[in-house]
Design a protein around this nucleic acid. Sequence first.
DNA 1: CGCTACATGTAAGGTGTTACATGATTCC
DNA 2: GGAATCATGTAACACCTTACATGTAGCG
Lengths: 175, 175
Amino acid sequence: MAVLGALSVVPMTGYALREQIRDTLGHFWSESFGQIYPTLAELERQELVERQSPEDSRSTPYSITEAGLARLRDLLSEPPQTPKPRSGLMLRLFFGAQLEPGAGRRLVADARSQAEGQLAEMASARAELSKDSRLAPNAAYILLTISAGEHAARATIAWADEALAELARLETATP
Amino acid sequence: MAVLGALSVVPMTGYALREQIRDTLGHFWSESFGQIYPTLAELERQELVERQSPEDSRSTPYSITEAGLARLRDLLSEPPQTPKPRSGLMLRLFFGAQLEPGAGRRLVADARSQAEGQLAEMASARAELSKDSRLAPNAAYILLTISAGEHAARATIAWADEALAELARLETATP
DNA sequence: CGCTACATGTAAGGTGTTACATGATTCC
DNA sequence: GGAATCATGTAACACCTTACATGTAGCG
């Protein structure tokens, strides 16, 4: 879905595809080369994507076919399945009583500064979006995903501030 | 880490372990039987967990050893690695221009009601926590993870409301 | 000329889920 | 006696990442 979606915006090589996925979908999606190349080969076999000159396979961008667009629409309308959650931070905090003093605060403080970083990334994503005219038809929807990232990051920061205050209280109460 | 952590609270069978992980760590962690049993066998081999009577292996709870507690503390102080994000919802929304009208709103509305559900779960987790005396030593830390879940859920709801308004605006603007 | 970026691909290995198989115990 | 729950385990498979191998093109 990610590959077809990206190619529906503009034709690209596999290499560029990975960069676009990393830079543009980065805050909610990721793919590695080991995924992308076999996927492209399979999509080409199914004639959902194609290359202009099949003879020279180097540096020739893949583009999506009509069948590919139809498949993309099918995939997009499947209900999203939420992956099983796996938060190492929460797991560590849950058993925080086992941690040495200060370790809990460090965990939360790190999470907070990561969220600050994400907030900055979202801001620059907004700036990028207005510059890249190829994304214009999708801009309204892309803004929704950026806004979601911002809401999530701000929620993390607000939680972290509360948690840090609580942890400070805990550790001074039982010295 | 999850298995050792759970056994550090109270000895359990593998079956109970899975229930506890599902019910208590559920909103930020998950394990399947296919993970738990091989993990327990390996931990027993390393003498990080043990059973009271090795002869009768049925229904005998595993308990954590001293070495297991030490290992748990080591694991807990390792920096948490954030998994590569994979949000099917955001991916679909990003390419939302390809979706038929109304599909976008349905996606967001579903996410919103899921978040409402999570909020309710967090409320009942709070109630459970005050009842279960075995969790008392960890209660303060557990409350932090519950609070994180609530912040995240409320952020999702706030975002969804904004997104729904924006999507309604979009779809009436270009009929 | 050597470094960096572009570009493609594969193989090995780790991780995790699902489904199946098996049997004991408990409860109605 | 039969159904549900407790309990343990395994095998197949899907998925994904990392590391490696290979080569081209452009640039200072």
